[in-house]
């Protein structure tokens, strides 16, 4: 892994200039504010550096910068931030796993919220990603109730297929794909769920309906179309592959051509 080669000596004395997007709420206009911050340690995570900034701001009587975060171990998908022109910053990981040793003394770091029509800004760096939930609600599940299911080993699944489904299932729903895409397209996110369930036998019965409904909801939310630039894959902290998008295209096309008519809400 390349990061092992690039390790730097630890220091706790970096000077960083932060250019942070501040916006009171969705109804007001926002703008950048510049905050110099001193004594930054290379061992700090990016979010810990923001904690330091916020504590300083509060002590000075200024409102803290609002940003989303929760698990701080790279799995909940709640943290976001567009850092120096890249979602989750310079490394292909989540912002909470980005450490200040990725920056140099004297750097200016621009921090912006995710930008997409479907992800309106709530405050400062916090955006509303409930569009993702609504897409999942449109069909990202297997319609079974609790209980009355077959024994787990009654459905053998080839290891390769299980592994491929897993590779799609690791999506954390952070929205970096949308943030990275010049079209703010959510195709990587949608394709990850469609792929997982299209690959597994459990997902087969509702496969066509699922692809149609999830795509319709994706469009209704106002995400852009995929132009196969590959930015999403390059920035995805979980390394979800573009192959999934191809699979979604295939699933959707074949569903459109062969499915029975289903009630689909949404659409442009």
């Amino acid at each position: 892994m390349n990061l092992l080669n690039g390790l730097k000596e630890a220091t706790n004395n970096m000077k960083i200039t932060l250019k942070v997007w501040r916006q009171k709420n969705n109804a007001t206009k926002g703008g950048f504010k510049v905050y110099p911050i001193e004594h930054v340690s290379t061992d700090m995570s990016f979010l810990e550096m923001l904690d330091v900034l916020n504590n300083d701001l509060v002590r000075k009587g200024e409102d803290a910068v609002a940003f989303d975060h929760d698990c701080r171990e790279g799995i909940c998908g709640m943290c976001s931030l567009y850092i120096n022109g890249k979602p989750h910053g310079p490394q292909q990981t989540t912002t909470c796993q980005l450490h200040m040793r990725s920056f140099k003394d004297g750097d200016t770091i621009t921090v912006e919220p995710w930008r997409a029509k479907a992800f309106p800004v709530i405050r400062d760096l916090v955006v509303d990603r409930t569009a993702f939930d609504r897409i999942q609600q449109a069909g990202g599940y297997v319609s079974i109730n609790t209980g009355g299911v077959p024994d787990a080993n009654e459905i053998p699944i080839p290891k390769k297929i299980a592994d491929e489904a897993f590779d799609a299932a690791v999506c954390i729903g952070c929205g970096a794909c949308v943030a990275a895409c010049k079209n703010a397209s959510a195709m990587l996110f949608v394709s990850a769920k469609v792929s997982q369930l299209a690959l597994l036998p459990q997902g087969k019965p509702e496969r066509k309906e699922r692809a149609e409904k999830m795509v319709a909801q994706m469009d209704a939310e106002g995400f852009g179309a995929c132009t196969n630039t590959g930015a999403c894959e390059a920035e995805c902290p979980k390394g979800i592959s573009l192959t999934n998008i191809a699979r979604l295209n295939r699933e959707y096309l074949s569903a459109s051509l062969t499915s029975y008519e289903v009630e689909v809400k949404g659409g442009d």
Binding site: V142, A152, I155, A165, F166, A169, L200
Partner: peptide
Amino acid sequence: QCVAQGVP
């Protein structure tokens, strides 16, 4: 239950 849901 989890396998039936598609947990890989």
